[in-house]
């Protein structure tokens, strides 16, 4: 089913005056109260400085933003976010693509393989973090012990890079199933006749993949890249909070984690709000990219 074919607005509709307002009302109310109002508060808050007890506040203009962009900690969190997100996106995409290509090749047991690969989608990020923590626990995790046996001094409570590795693995593990499903669907949509034509032309399976299949998959890949980045940016809070809590130090504190941490732990509302505003802006940009992509797809 091509969901975009109806993108031209429907020309047939009901001639009613009041009913449509009644129908959009619930969603509008919910959106206004729980989305626009908080967003407006964030914007307002971003221009005030509040004391730690929330008793008084004072208008400070762009000070919160100025402070934010002069804060090395903030740049550190941007860097952490970038490293984390791109690591998750690339490893998740690469592994999922490999598995999907393999699954597309097999004739028997495709559905069984799919079943055994999709379930991590349903696992909460926080739980994914806990599961991998156990495997990598420095004092008794089987993988950690095994690494230590080979001379790697694994302790993600002390080593920032190792902590990052752990959260990347946990977050990737959960996302593979999602990517896998999309890649498999994309592969199955590649016209058989194209592959047959290429093999008649004598292209080896490897060559066929890189010259024909992969280019045809590029819309799927691009879509997944955006989705994976969004996932890593925003949906992985649970992974980080359950395993490293941003530590050691701030080595796994992503931008979203910092919003929470500065707001609820550090009680620096002004800075947290300013960070929210920056994030909302970022999401806005990503949404536009996503829509651009969708629009381009319409023309296909």
């Amino acid at each position: 089913m091509n969901l975009w074919q109806g993108a031209v607005l429907m020309s047939v509709y009901f001639p009613h005056k009041k009913l449509p307002y009644l129908l959009v009302l619930p969603q509008l109310v919910i959106t206004l109260i729980f989305f626009l109002w908080p967003a407006e508060q964030a914007f307002e808050q971003a221009f005030y400085q509040e004391d730690a007890f929330g008793l008084s506040r004072e208008f400070v203009g762009f000070d919160n933003f100025v402070y934010l962009f002069n804060d090395p900690q903030y740049y550190k969190s941007i860097w952490v976010t970038l490293v984390f997100s791109f690591s998750v996106a690339f490893s998740g995409l690469a592994i999922a693509l490999w598995l999907a290509v393999m699954a597309d090749r097999v004739i028997r047991g495709k559905l069984t393989y799919q079943t055994l690969l999709v379930w991590p989608y349903a696992v909460a990020p926080a739980l994914a973090g806990v599961l991998w923590w156990l495997l990598f626990d420095p004092s008794m995790g089987p993988i950690a012990l095994w690494l230590q046996y080979f001379g790697v001094d694994w302790n993600h409570f002390l080593n920032g890079d190792q902590a990052m590795t752990l959260v990347v693995i946990s977050a990737t593990w959960k996302q593979i199933s999602y990517n896998f499903l999309f890649f498999l669907a994309g592969l199955q949509a590649v016209p058989r006749s194209l592959i047959e034509a290429a093999s008649i032309d004598g292209a080896s399976p490897f060559k066929r993949f890189w010259t024909i299949v992969f280019p045809l998959l590029s819309p799927t890949t691009f879509f997944l890249l955006v989705i994976n980045l969004v996932y890593a940016f925003f949906d992985t809070f649970g992974v980080i909070d359950a395993t490293t809590q941003g530590g050691p130090g701030v080595s796994t504190a992503t931008m979203v984690y910092k919003v929470f941490n500065d707001g609820f732990i550090g009680l620096d509302m002004g800075s947290s709000a300013a960070q929210s505003v920056v994030l909302m802006f970022l999401v806005g940009v990503m949404t536009v990219i996503q829509f651009r992509y969708i629009e381009r797809k319409v023309e296909y």
Partner: peptide, 14 residues
């Protein structure tokens, strides 16, 4: 595309 995580503090206050 704006998850609750991004606007967590003001949403909490509301």
């Amino acid at each position: 595309m704006l998850p609750v995580e991004v606007r967590i503090v003001p949403t909490y206050e509301v």
